[in-house]
Nucleic acid binder design. Structure first.
Lengths: 318, 318
DNA sequence: CTTATATTGCTCATATTGAGCAAAAGGAGT
DNA sequence: ACTCCTTTTGCTCAATATGAGCAATATAAG
């Protein structure tokens, strides 16, 4: 108590890649509470910046280089890290962790150091609308949310739960906003519908919960990352950090769909794409697509145009 | 060396408000290196979360309550905090600071605790395009950037400096992107054109530098905040956190312009605004506007529609 | 030599955006 | 009372962008 409170800083990396049109997340198997994110302590003596530290231990542990790296969020809530059973005794140190989003070009070869690639929709099955609305939503999640709404005390509280559920999950008429990934996870956590919630509160682990659990608060960190990249893909050419050197437009589209989680209109996708000027056809063709061969494209790194955005309507300055 | 490296966590708040159509930033005067952001140590024993800690000492120090609060970024570079002369001896502890953006409703009364409101464009005069392109850009900054480009060694390096300057400052034909506020500050810092750069490198302080300096890396933190809010205003109704309870549409527009830093087309602003459904006319009128009286509006808190965004064109799912 | 599958090119109706004209509703000065 | 001045508000119109779909093209498989 009277001692200086000890603060330790850890770095978590959400490393994303695309493999075979399917979105992948690098996790390290973690006994007990499910997969964990790659984690490394931040050593202030050794590393001048967080990012240097991060890149170093990722290279060491997973033995591959990171491309795009961006800070996500710093998690510092007490109790947050508690469930990580293999941490030093509780109360000793307060661990705050800085979450990073990193994008890798290929999830092809198996990473070294015990990490494995996993389809990220395992952890968020309700987020995958690529083949229409996922059954788990209508069949299980929405009814469970309804129960959660109903069991609130007082109409006011029910009202507020209903609103929150409506907006985050796009219930009755509201449209699904794929960027609200974090909100949805947090709502499910709050409603006790993901097993981390039960675990953290020491509740009985038996009840209905959705998606595969992860260690500590890692699933929240991943949800933060998904929200971020789903937003970012719209105003920055980040998909290209996930693509191989050469790719067909369909590959690119499937990658984009993997990220945002719903299908796109092919012709319009292409029209919009070449208005951006981001891709450039190499004359080469990709064989074996099953149909007409597709031209191979590459990213034009220099076309760094800007992208407007909506909300309160602030037309670009010219 | 052999002791455990000590890490201390501090919290910095960028508190923004609108007063009289002019954008304000809360700073505490800091001897020597210019104004500083309100800063408070994070005490892990006392505070369960960063945000609780932040709200507490802001309430204490500035004696007013914060509305909207959002984490910005965690700054951990070594050397970053060095210039803060009144910190404990260098090398003792590594201070990392978590920056927060906060929005206050009124910058009217003077805050207690030594803080003062300052127009934020003092620190970033090149960001204020509300009355056309600021003279400081054409007259001083662009020439200085050109010198910086020219003095690079080798055509490759010159090329890369030129590109960076072109994109961030919208030189020759490129359009000005008001969200690149942080990029611009960082470029100026890297080019030695803000006095923090000279100070941090111990260079001679005499030369040309732009904007009013701040303590430590606080100006970088503010630039981060401006970039964030300029982006956010487009897809979240955050302006309303800066507005008084009732306001005219012109007031709202001037607030939006204060933030994004350039003028908007009045009729179109209104058209877009009422499509969002965010504002609701109260029957009341505002006297004395100098012309026809304007209706007073208020924010409809419930109209939480979503807002799409551009970039790689991902049309909303319906 | 047909069928299936994908890639591309194009069209069209409908929205959204950018820009500006003009009427309405005060206040101030004469 | 009447005329300026200023600001709000309503409306129009051309130019673009978006959403959806039809059709031609190019290959592999049967």
């Amino acid at each position: 108590m009277s001692k200086n409170p000890v603060i330790a800083v850890g770095l978590n990396a959400v490393i994303l890649a695309i493999a075979e049109d399917s979105p992948q997340l690098l996790v390290v198997p973690h006994t007990g509470s499910g997969a964990a994110l790659p984690f490394g302590p931040f050593d202030p003596e050794k590393h001048r910046t967080f990012e240097i530290g991060l890149r170093e231990w990722v290279t060491e542990q997973a033995s591959f280089q990171l491309g795009f790296v961006e800070q996500l969020y710093t998690f510092g809530d007490r109790g947050r890290e508690a469930p990580l059973a293999d941490l030093p005794a509780r109360g000793e140190a307060r661990v705050i962790s800085v979450g990073y989003l990193a994008l890798a070009q290929e999830a092809g070869e198996r990473p070294a150091g015990g990490g494995v690639w996993r389809d990220w929709y395992r952890f968020f099955p309700w987020e995958d609308w690529r083949n229409g609305k996922p059954a788990i939503l209508s069949d299980h999640i929405e009814p469970a949310l309804q129960r959660w709404i109903d069991e609130a005390e007082g109409e006011g509280r029910r009202e507020s739960r209903r609103d929150r559920a409506r907006i985050t999950f796009g219930l009755d008429g509201q449209s699904w906003n794929e960027e609200r990934c974090l909100d949805r996870y947090e709502l499910l956590y709050g409603a006790g519908l993901v097993s981390e919630a039960r675990r953290d509160q020491g509740g009985e682990p038996g009840s209905v919960t959705f998606g595969e659990a992860m260690a500590s608060d890692h699933r929240r960190v991943v949800a933060t990352a998904l929200s971020r990249i789903r937003a970012k893909i719209k105003y920055r050419p980040v998909i290209f950090d996930l693509m191989p050197d050469r790719f067909t437009l369909s590959q690119l589209q499937r990658a984009a769909e993997a990220i945002i989680g719903y299908p796109l209109h092919k012709q319009n996708f292409r029209r919009a794409l070449d208005r951006t000027g981001f891709v450039l056809g190499t004359g080469k063709m990709d064989a074996a697509t099953g149909g007409r061969p597709a031209e191979l494209f590459r990213f034009r790194r220099d076309a760094l145009k800007e992208g407007p955005a909506s909300g309160i309507s602030t037309p670009r300055l010219r």
